[in-house]
Design a protein around this nucleic acid. Structure first.
Lengths: 140, 140
DNA sequence: TGAATTTATATCGTGCACGATATATTTTAC
DNA sequence: GTAAAATATATCGTGCACGATATAAATTCA
């Protein structure tokens, strides 16, 4: 019976922490005029520019039907560009605009500002990150 | 510069794991005809029946404008009932219907079925749960 | 080569999340 | 005792997530 107690749920803490951290991000992302999932897409593009929709989706463990409209919004905001691949016309290649590139400079301070607001012991964080990585592999 | 790499993000693993576990829940919850956030509300009600909207929202770290329409859907499904408090007319008291009570019996097996699909070492899980609890306290 | 299958993206519908706002009830303070 | 503030819920708009479906291009294979 205890297994149905909220306190003993496995997913609930992940679900809550995720939303709580996103809330902490929001004021900084508002300054850039983007949302958290849009920020994740930009992180991917800042690492590697010019990628098909599917590659971005896979890196974020999302489906293309989630990020297609998100990418259309980023295009409307003039942050990215969407062009058809010349070698494979099915593929839509996503690339950063000048504005998208410039946003990286402003974004650089976000991770620091964010961690200031959360006083989590650093040694715990390192260990936690390893556990979470293991967990993602098991869940895929 | 490395702080903007997807791999080094703090929130991304929580966001991904949360969605991945919810995906594992979905087939079992489909059998009950409910969604994961609706399941969370039922967990709260199965522990304590008859609660105002606000109490449920607080336990789930959600806002009332998120769960009000969710509760209306659960009412349409005849799983819960919504009645005004007699002592404070502002409060809407949420209670389980007969169907809502009966669903608990079917739900009892969900935690076991779910953990079967994830081979996470048990000693790690205990430690992880403690870390996550600490984190939630820091983030509130 | 041409039909069948696979791949890549897009579209549509539903249900969250959440900021902003509205409305009604209760409490507080003068 | 009544106006102001606080509380509780509801409504509205936008942007995800994701299942289901559509469409078009590329690949496979008979």
């Amino acid at each position: 019976m205890d297994e149905l107690k909220l306190e003993n749920q496995l997913c609930f803490p992940f679900y809550s922490i995720s939303r709580m951290i996103i809330r902490k991000y929001t004021p900084f992302l508002n300054e850039l005029g983007i949302t958290y999932p849009q920020y994740l897409v930009l992180l991917v593009l800042w690492e590697t520019d010019f990628q098909p929709v599917n590659d971005i989706a896979k890196k974020l463990y999302l489906q293309t039907n989630t990020i297609t409209p998100l990418l259309q919004r980023l295009e409307n905001l003039k942050i990215i560009e969407r062009t058809k691949s010349e070698t494979d016309e099915r593929k839509t290649i996503i690339s950063l605009s000048t504005k998208g590139h410039e946003m990286k400079l402003k974004a650089l301070e976000i991770p620091y500002k964010l961690m200031e607001g959360i006083n989590f012991p650093n040694e715990d964080l390192v260990q936690l990150r390893d556990q979470l990585k293991k967990m993602i592999l098991l869940l895929q």
